[in-house]
Nucleic acid binder design. Structure first.
Lengths: 256, 256
DNA sequence: CGTTAAGTTGACACGACTCAAAGGCGGTGG
DNA sequence: CCACCGCCTTTGAGTCGTGTCAACTTAACG
């Protein structure tokens, strides 16, 4: 679906972690090599599998390389609340080790490639690689900003705009790591999961999707989101992508 | 309102930053002294004043020592969304410098004491004080966990439980820094601000408050929240305080 | 084909919003 | 000291978004 460069350049060019971090920090060739090396020990994880459960003490740091996962909390009333999507290049739990135990769980939405990094490696990087450390900080802060945006969007907007807003965000984030075309992307989640993300019922989620389709804004079919007019969707969702800190990309080619 | 130790011990005993950080990290006497020193250059800020505005590039790192402030976002549709409360001991923007610009604003709710720390000091600490650095990390992660809890609570619960949940959280957090009694605390915000926090209208916020009062759970009068039966409120709100990571306090007295 | 998960539909109930206006309450100035 | 004023809180009435329940259709898979 997405064109890939020749095999030789694959590592550096298409590694979603590197692509993402380049938006927030200036990396050198050595940094990229280090990150590349970390990503080598990847593992395949089945769809709909918990990577880590609520209450569990985090052992490894995990990173999604391919596929999709989401963070979720199980509420005392039995409901599930999805509080974030993990796309290629996203860390699952970069520093939660400090907190001792997970306050939420993480599950794959679809079969995914995940890297597991032991904590020593992370600590070693923190000690010896200031540029990478700064890039990790940047990623953490963007996650936090995203959480704030969700909270604001969530509490203060009707469901149709929330849904549109979510699609806008995912489009930008997936484009940033080369996993979306100009107006469409794979979103391997059910309407049920969408509903638990927005805090609405499945029935209502379904109706909202139909409404957006009828209005000629977005069509979601076969786990694929197709946006008919990106500008119009942005306007409808009142979407302002600055909180994602993904533009302008600072990765001009280094002097050769 | 809250008993204070004698003047000599004041600094270490009552500094809310130190009190809070002791919950997450083991600090030594030297660390406390360093933190104490940072807090010396405090400044008084009027009620209802912006500490920093949306879009502004962050210059200083700020820390609330006394009083109360809140983070808020102004949405494109003109509404205000309050996405967090800053209590004594809370940092306003510990590391946002990396992001370049604020994605939200911070305003005092009441006249407050705020410390301004220049970035060099923070960077110096990060370089030379591993225990304090870890404690700062801890505080950041707790903030993020709180955001997730709000998002879940927000999207998936009726307004009365949200309100109760918020009161529970504030009680625990204020108790942790010695700013609340066993069942009550000052909450210097209007019903309007409460409404913008929960994403409901003022009218509805008012009705919810009345309901909680009638049910004998909470009374909010004169900017003071009085909880009638803490256990019953916890149960009603389905409140589980683990996400705050404020218990058990690890600050046993050091060997003298 | 039979079975199961996901998506779709309709009817009805209720929580929450809006608009609009009236009642405290704490200031400030005459 | 009282009158006035503005900010906050409280009320009422009518509307709309969203939830629930329950059934049905479609798609996916062996």
């Amino acid at each position: 679906m997405w064109p890939r460069p020749a095999m030789g350049a694959w590592c550096v060019m298409d590694n979603p972690l590197i692509r993402k971090l380049e938006f927030g920090a200036r990396l050198e060739t050595a940094d990229r090599a280090r990150l590349e090396e970390i990503c080598r020990r990847a593992r395949r994880v089945e769809a709909r599998t918990d990577l880590i459960e609520q209450g569990e003490p985090p052992s490894m740091v995990r990173l999604v390389l391919e596929g999709m996962a989401y963070r979720y909390k199980l509420l005392p009333n039995g409901r599930r609340s999805i509080v974030g999507f993990l796309l290629p290049g996203d860390f699952c739990d970069l520093h939660v080790a400090i907190l001792g135990r997970m306050d939420h769980a993480i599950a794959t939405a679809v079969t995914s490639t995940v890297v597991e990094i032991d904590r020593d490696t992370i600590e070693d990087i923190t000690r010896t690689e200031p540029r990478i450390t700064r890039a990790f900080w940047w990623a953490t802060l963007v996650d936090e900003a995203t959480l704030r945006e969700w909270l604001a969007s969530m509490g203060h907007r009707p469901a149709d705009k929330q849904m549109a807003h979510l699609f806008c965000e995912l489009l930008i984030r997936l484009q940033a790591v080369g996993r979306a075309s100009v107006d469409s992307f794979r979103l391997p989640v059910t309407q049920d999961e969408l509903a638990d993300t927005l805090g609405i019922s499945v029935v209502h989620a379904n109706r909202v999707l139909q409404q957006l389709r009828e209005d000629g804004l977005v069509t979601m079919r076969n786990r694929t989101v197709k946006i008919h007019d990106v500008g119009r969707l942005y306007a409808f969702a009142e979407f302002d992508p600055t909180y994602l800190h993904l533009a302008p990309p600072r990765n001009e080619p280094e002097a050769a």
